[in-house]
Simulated assay, not measured.
Amino acid sequence: MRQKKIRGHKRRHKQIDNWRLDNLSLDLTDYLLNERDRYYAKIRVHPWSGISLTNSITPQPKGKTKQKMLNGLLDIYENWKTQLDKLGKPYYLKVWLFEPRFSQSQVVCAIGDNVGFYENTFYKPDSDKTIQLDRYGTLKTKLSNLNWDYSLDEDHYDNTLVGEPEIYVSRQDYEETVKWFDKLLKKPHRTQKFKEPIGETTELYSFKRGDVWLGGQK
């Protein structure tokens, strides 16, 4: 599959500025406190968000575009922290920095009973790594103000993914899906077997796609 060429960088940078401004403040009264006590700010900038309608993949942000996005995430984190500190109650607040799938990066927070909700979102391998701040240029100092923990960025599938033949349009569609899934499971991955089934799900298959760095002030 070919890579899509990104054009109109000035327009993209303006969109990044608007996305940053739209997310600097938490609506603590109307959303975070009264709904589900969890909130996040993903990078909502076209074409890195949403579904591609063309037969191509969007390259990950780089250069000035990536710097502006990351700076926006760090500013959002700092502003949210200021607001959450005023609540006087425990909270979870982290920057999730994905590499190389940077466009999935986001700021995530939770309060109340949901403080521990995100603690086990990512798998932490036995072999640890240290974030290389030099690769982020002028944002190195800003990034160094946070403590960064390493985990894996993974895609997850379970044993029910293929499903039964009757849910497919044709027998051929079913057999092609079975073949694709069998081929997928031959690639390196880790398997988690559940002690108790969750519905019909008994196993989870996790495939490493990169790293995710969880940054926050302790």
Rank of each mutant, 00 (worst) to 15 (best):
I6G: 07
V95M: 03
L32Q: 01
K208W: 01
L84S: 12
H156F: 08
E78D: 13
G210M: 06
L33F: 13
L74W: 00
P47T: 04
L73R: 02
T138E: 01
K94F: 06
T191H: 05
G199N: 08
T82Y: 08
S103P: 07
P90A: 14
R171S: 10
N79E: 14
Y91G: 10
V108R: 02
L28G: 02
D126H: 11
R12V: 15
H46M: 12
W19M: 07
Y136N: 06
V115P: 02
N79F: 04
Q172C: 06
K208Q: 12
I131H: 08
E164D: 11
S127W: 06
L152G: 11
D85S: 02
T58D: 03
E35P: 01
T82S: 15
N55G: 05
G215H: 08
T138R: 00
D113C: 12
K124Y: 05
D22T: 09
T141E: 12
F207H: 11
Y123P: 04
I76Q: 03
E175F: 09
S144R: 02
G199S: 00
W213P: 10
R101W: 04
D113G: 09
W80V: 14
E78H: 04
K66S: 01
Q60G: 10
F117V: 15
L204D: 09
Y40H: 07
K66N: 09
N120Y: 11
K179Q: 15
M1W: 10
T58M: 10
K187G: 13
D134C: 03
V107T: 10
A41N: 00
I16F: 05
D158N: 14
L184C: 11
D22V: 05
I43T: 01
L21S: 14
E175G: 12
Y136C: 07
E200N: 13
L87C: 09
R2W: 00
Q217H: 04
K14I: 05
N71R: 04
R12N: 06
P165G: 12
V115Y: 09
N120T: 12
I76C: 04
A110G: 00
T160E: 07
E99V: 12
F122N: 05
K179S: 15
D158V: 02
G112E: 01
H9M: 15
T141G: 08
Y205I: 14
V107G: 15
E154M: 15
K186E: 14
Q83R: 02
Q172T: 10
D126L: 15
S206N: 03
R36P: 00
N34K: 07
D158F: 03
Q192F: 01
L161V: 11
K62M: 11
G116Y: 00
E119M: 05
T141S: 15
D158G: 06
L28Y: 03
L214C: 08
K10N: 04
L73N: 00
K183P: 09
G112Y: 07
W96E: 15
L74K: 02
N114C: 06
P165C: 12
L214H: 04
P59N: 04
T138G: 05
Y92Q: 11
K94I: 10
D126I: 00
W80N: 05
E166P: 02
G72N: 00
P90D: 10
S105H: 07
K14E: 13
T29E: 13
L139A: 03
S206R: 02
D126G: 13
L204Q: 12
M69Y: 09
Q172H: 06
Y205N: 15
N159R: 09
Q217Y: 08
Q217D: 10
R7F: 11
D173I: 08
Q104V: 01
T121H: 08
P188A: 02
Q15L: 13
K129R: 14
S56R: 13
